[in-house]
Computed example of a mutant assay.
Amino acid sequence: MIAFTIQQLECWTQIKSHTLRVWEQRYKAFSPKRNGRQHRLYEPDDIQRALCLSLLTLHHSLTAQLAALPLSDLKARTRLLITASQPLTYHVVELLMAIVDNDADGFRQLLQANWHRVGGLVTLRKLILPFLQRLEDVWGSGLETVEEWASSRVILEQHLVDCTDRLPSPWRMAERYMIVQAKPGGFQLLPQIAHYLLLSQGYAVARPVLHESAELTPEALQSYRPKYVVAVLSGWPARSLVQSYIDQLVSLCTPAQVLLTGDRITGQDISVPEGAGLLHRIEELI
């Protein structure tokens, strides 16, 4: 069974670790095991309890009576609260709980129900993007390789791909682009989900979210045949290396395919190859 540290529990719930300790010690909300170094280890049911309490305590103070409820009762109360309140941000907790349960069908149904209820663009901005941001914290805490959750990641990407045609035309335009990000030694392809993240959040997302991506190679270009290759130069490389990375990219693509963007090129004295494009705003993609 998967065991989680208190730091990972904090990533799941966005509840500070000192608060989680208070919930455990004062209200007996959890009963974590200890490893050989006496560090707390939480089980999936503890994650579920903490996710439920993270919502319920937005409306009620935590009491020993609430903390002692069986997990099934906490889930029932959480669902009632979500149904009554309806903010999409609350449904982020439902998606996370479905992942912990390895409930691929439930995960898919939650996405589809909200998509039909409020529309694709609202669901994308107010549910899926906050969910992905939470996941980014979770994967970054060392849980990115948990195989049991792979199905949910695949479902999420496929759901976005399947629903692309229902979105307004600016979002559909993302399909014309291959988005790449500089990394030590070269460029990597960002997954399909990054197209939507970049178009909705500008340059805030600077790395793949759902899975590791392949390197940009002549073979990858031949396979995807993009109209444009958008190179996001944010965070990496060092400013002194920007020009060499641009030259490397142009050696892989035709200059007319290349669109450069990101904070590493803003205000820099760089030489943009003839025929290549320079984007100061992500909206220029549309």
Rank of each mutant, 00 (worst) to 15 (best):
M1K: 01
M1A: 15
I2G: 03
I6K: 00
I6T: 02
C11S: 14
W12D: 03
I15W: 00
S17I: 01
S17W: 00
S17N: 11
H18D: 12
L20T: 07
W23K: 06
E24D: 04
Q25I: 06
R26Y: 01
Y27P: 06
Y27E: 03
K28R: 11
F30T: 01
K33M: 04
R34N: 08
R34G: 05
H39C: 09
Y42I: 01
Y42L: 05
E43I: 02
E43P: 01
D45G: 02
D45R: 07
D46S: 00
D46P: 00
L51C: 01
L53D: 05
L55C: 13
L56A: 10
H60S: 15
L62A: 05
P70N: 00
K75E: 15
A76H: 14
R77W: 02
S85E: 11
S85G: 09
L88V: 14
T89R: 15
Y90K: 09
V93F: 01
V93G: 07
L96K: 12
M97T: 04
R108E: 13
Q109D: 11
A113R: 15
N114Y: 06
G119Q: 10
T123K: 10
I128N: 02
L129H: 11
P130M: 08
F131C: 07
Q133F: 15
Q133V: 10
Q133E: 12
E136M: 14
V138T: 04
W139N: 14
G140C: 14
G142R: 09
G142N: 11
E144D: 12
T145E: 11
T145M: 05
E147K: 10
E147D: 03
E148Q: 15
A150K: 07
V154D: 12
V154L: 00
I155G: 12
I155W: 07
L156I: 03
E157N: 10
L160F: 15
D162Y: 03
T164Y: 12
D165W: 03
R166T: 15
L167R: 06
R172W: 02
R176T: 04
A182E: 13
A182T: 10
K183R: 15
P184S: 11
G186S: 09
L190G: 13
Q192R: 06
Y196D: 05
L197K: 03
L198Y: 12
L198N: 06
L198G: 06
L199V: 08
L199C: 10
S200R: 06
Q201I: 14
G202N: 03
A204D: 12
V205K: 09
R207Q: 01
E212H: 06
S213I: 00
A214C: 07
T217P: 04
P218I: 12
Q222H: 08
Q222E: 13
S223M: 15
P226N: 11
V229D: 05
V232K: 05
A238Y: 10
R239H: 09
L241C: 04
V242G: 01
I246F: 05
L252M: 10
A256D: 13
Q257D: 00
L259I: 06
T261D: 02
R264S: 15
R264K: 05
I265W: 00
I265L: 07
T266S: 07
D269Q: 12
V272L: 08
G275L: 13
L279S: 14
H280F: 01
E284V: 08
